[in-house]
Design a protein around this nucleic acid. Structure first.
Lengths: 161, 161
DNA sequence: CCAAGTATCTCGCTCAGCGAGATAATGTGG
DNA sequence: CCACATTATCTCGCTGAGCGAGATACTTGG
C-alpha cells in the first residue's frame, strides 16, 4: 500500500520526527525507571527536583505536584516514595511552617547522572557537528515548539487540583 | 551549594530545551487525555495506531503492546478500553487466526486531529520561518537524538513478555 | 484574636498494569 | 496425521499510583 498518501505538507516530516523523539525519550525513561525500581512519575519528579536544584530554586511538595500534574494526595504519596527510597528529605520551611521543602539527596543526583549522562554526552557530541548558525536554528525551533505546546493548554493560571 | 555552578558545556542549553519540550508535550498529552476520558497510555496507543495506519501497516494487539512497553495482560486491558470507547475494533486475522488486528475507527482519527491539529499547525507555521538549510539542521539533530536515545536502551532485540 | 486562605496530609476508593497461567491456533518432526 | 513446542491473546488475582473529599496545621488580613 502506502499509495498516494495525499501529499503531506512541507515540514510534516519534522513534526513526525519530533514525535518520535519524544516517544523514544519516554520509553527510555520508563525503561530506566522500572529498572531502578521506580515509576515513570518518580523519574519525572527527580528530573524536576534536579532541575530546580540546578537553578538554585527551592522546591516545595506542592510546587512539585503542580509541575507534574498531580493532586495533593498523589503528591504526598510520590514524596513518600522518593523519601523512602532515600532520594530526598522533607524539610519544614522555617519561614512558612505549612510548607515542606524537598531536599535532594546526592544519590538522586547520581541516579540522574546515570540516566542522563550517556544521553547528554551523545547529544553534545552530536551538537559538535553543527555550526553556530545551525545551533541557533535548533534553539529557536525547540523554543518555539515548547512555547507553542505550553500555549495549547490553558492560556494561563491553571488553578485546579 | 549552587554557587559557581561549574560552567555547563556549550550546547547544554539545547539539551535542557529538548527536555523541556518533551515535558511540555507529555503534560499536554496527559491533560488532553484526561480531558477526553482516557489515560496517557491510551493516547500513546492511539498515536501508535494512527501512525501505523498512516504507514499502511497492520497493527496487532501484541505489536501495539510491545511498542508501548506493556505486557500481554496490560495490552488486553488497553485494547478493551479503547474498544469500549469505540476507538478501534478487534478483527481476527484470517491468515493467522491467533492474531487480533486492530482497526482504528474514524472517531479515533478525529480525536487525534483535535489534539495534534493545532499543535501541528503551529509547528508548521514555525517551520515556515526557517530556510531549507536550517530545516535540514533541525532534521539532522532530531534524527540524531532519536537514534541516540533508542541506542541507549538495549542494543537490539528486546524480546520479553 | 478570629476568619479566610494556603500547604500538606489522611482515608477510602478506582482502576492501570503486572505475574502466572489458561486457551487456541500454527508449525514441525516422526 | 498425531504429539509437541511455539506464538498470540486472554483470564484471574493482586499491587499500588493517583483521585476526591476532607482533616489538620500554619499564616495573614481585618
Amino acid at each position: 500500500m502506502v499509495v498516494a498518501r495525499e501529499r503531506e505538507p512541507e515540514g510534516m516530516d519534522l513534526v513526525h520526527l519530533l514525535r518520535e523523539v519524544t516517544l523514544q525519550l519516554d520509553l527510555a525513561g520508563g525503561e530506566f525507571a522500572t529498572r531502578n525500581g521506580l515509576h515513570p512519575t518518580d523519574l519525572r519528579a527527580l528530573i524536576a527536583l534536579l532541575d530546580a536544584a540546578r537553578a538554585g530554586e527551592e522546591l516545595t511538595a506542592g510546587r512539585l505536584g503542580a509541575r507534574l500534574g498531580l493532586n495533593s494526595a498523589g503528591t504526598t504519596a510520590l514524596v513518600d516514595r522518593l523519601e523512602r527510597l532515600g532520594h530526598l528529605r522533607r524539610v519544614r520551611d522555617t519561614r512558612d511552617r505549612r510548607r515542606v521543602l524537598l531536599v535532594v539527596d546526592p544519590r538522586a543526583v547520581a541516579l540522574g547522572q546515570s540516566f542522563f549522562g550517556p544521553l547528554i554526552a551523545r547529544t553534545l557530541a552530536l551538537l559538535d557537528t553543527f555550526d553556530p548558525g545551525e545551533r541557533a536554528a535548533i534553539r529557536r525551533f525547540l523554543t518555539g515548539v515548547r512555547d507553542a505546546t505550553a500555549g495549547t493548554q490553558e492560556p494561563e493560571g491553571a488553578e485546579k487540583t
